[in-house]
Computed example of a mutant assay.
Amino acid sequence: MIIVLSVALIFAAIMNIILLRRRRERLQVFYNVEPKTTSLLSLVESQINSKQQSFSDEVLFGINAWIRFNYRLLMMGPSKAKTFMYILFGTVACIFLNHKYLNYDIYVVIPVGLFVSIAAICIIRKKKLKTEFYANFPEALNIITGLIASGYAITTTFKNCANSVEGIVGETFKEMNDRLEVGDSVENVMLNSYMQLPFPEYYFFILTVMVNLDSGGELKEIFGRLSKMLTNNRIMAKTRDGKTAELRMTMYILGVMPFLFILVLRFVSETNYNLLMSTDGGRYILYYVIGSVTFGFLLIRNWISKII
C-alpha cells in the first residue's frame, strides 16, 4: 500500500509540475515584448529574467507554487473551522473503513486519510472556483468594457467590479483595488491575481491590461471579443456535457462496480475476501484494480475534455 501511495504521489507531483511549468511559459510572453521605453513590461521582463533558474530550482518553485495554490483552495470559505472538521471527519471515516474492511496498520491509514480528505476538499473547491470564474468573469468584462467606453481608466474599473461582481472574481478585483490604493505596483498586483485565478482567459486579460498601460490599445473591442469567446465556450461546454452525459455515467458505473463486487464478496464469501485482503497475491490484485480503474478514469476524462 505504501509503494502504491508513493507512486501515486510521485505521479501527481510530476503532473502538477508540468502544469505549473506550462503556466510559467504563458508568462514568458511578457519577455518577448520589446518596450520602447522603460515601462511596466520592462519591469516584468526583469522579474522573469531573475527567475531563470536551474531545473532543480524550477522543480522546487513548481512544488512551492502548487502547495500555495492548494493552500488557498483549502482556506477558501467563510469558516476555517469547518475545513478542519471536514478533514477530521474524512480521516476518522478512513480509519473506520480500514478497521472494518482492510485492516492496514494505523500509521499508514492516518496519513492516507489526511491526504485523501485534503485532496477531496481541494478538488471540490477547485471545481467550485472554476464554475464561479466562468459564471462571473464575463459580467466583470462587461462592466469594465462599459466603464472604459465612458472614459474611465482601466485601473479605476476594478473597484466597480469589486462592488458589482460576486464570488471569487469580485474578491480578486477587490484585493487588486486595495493593493493599488496603497501604492503596490500594477505588475505585482496583476501577477499575484493570476495566481488566484489561473485560467487562460484571465491570463489574456491581464496581458492585455499590462500592454495597454504601456502602449495603449482598443480595449473595448478586445474585451468585447473576450467576453463573446467566454460565452461561446460556455455554450460549447454545455453542449459537450449534454452529448457525453451517457458516456460519463457509464464510466462512473463501471468504475464503481469492482469495488462494489469486493464489498459484496465480504458477505457472500468471507474466505475469498480474506484471501484478497490478507495475502500478498490478493493485495497485488487489489492494487491492480485500483490502478487500472484510476488510469482508465483519467484517460476517458481526458478524452471527454477534448470533445467540442
Rank of each mutant, 00 (worst) to 15 (best):
F30W: 03
Y31R: 12
N32C: 08
V33A: 03
V33S: 03
E34A: 12
E34H: 09
K36D: 11
T37W: 05
T38M: 07
L41C: 02
L43E: 14
L43Y: 14
V44K: 06
E45R: 13
E45C: 09
E45Y: 11
S46Y: 13
S46C: 09
Q47K: 13
Q47G: 14
I48Y: 09
N49M: 14
S50Q: 06
S50A: 12
K51E: 15
Q52W: 09
Q52A: 13
Q53V: 15
S54D: 07
S54K: 06
F55I: 14
S56I: 15
D57T: 14
E58G: 06
E58W: 05
V59N: 07
L60G: 04
F61T: 11
F61Q: 12
G62Y: 02
I63Y: 00
N64M: 07
W66G: 15
I67A: 00
N70D: 07
N70W: 01
Y71Q: 10
R72G: 12
R72P: 12
L73Q: 08
L74I: 03
L74F: 11
G77L: 05
G77W: 09
G77F: 06
S79P: 11
K80D: 13
K80I: 05
K80M: 09
K82S: 09
T83F: 04
F84Y: 15
F84I: 15
M85C: 11
Y86F: 09
F89C: 10
G90T: 03
T91I: 03
T91F: 01
T91A: 04
V92C: 06
V92E: 01
A93W: 02
C94E: 07
I95H: 03
F96T: 01
L97P: 00
N98I: 00
N98H: 02
K100I: 11
Y101R: 00
N103E: 02
Y104D: 02
Y104A: 04
I110V: 12
P111L: 04
P111I: 03
V112K: 01
V112Q: 06
F115R: 02
S117Y: 03
I118F: 01
I118R: 00
A119S: 12
A119Y: 12
A120I: 08
I121G: 02
I121K: 04
I121L: 08
C122M: 03
C122F: 04
C122E: 03
I123N: 04
I124T: 14
I124M: 10
R125V: 08
R125N: 13
K126D: 15
K127P: 03
L129F: 05
L129H: 08
L129T: 08
F133D: 05
F133T: 02
Y134V: 01
Y134K: 00
A135P: 02
N136K: 05
P138E: 05
A140L: 10
A140H: 10
L141T: 08
L141K: 07
L147N: 10
L147D: 12
I148L: 11
I148Q: 05
I148K: 05
S150H: 07
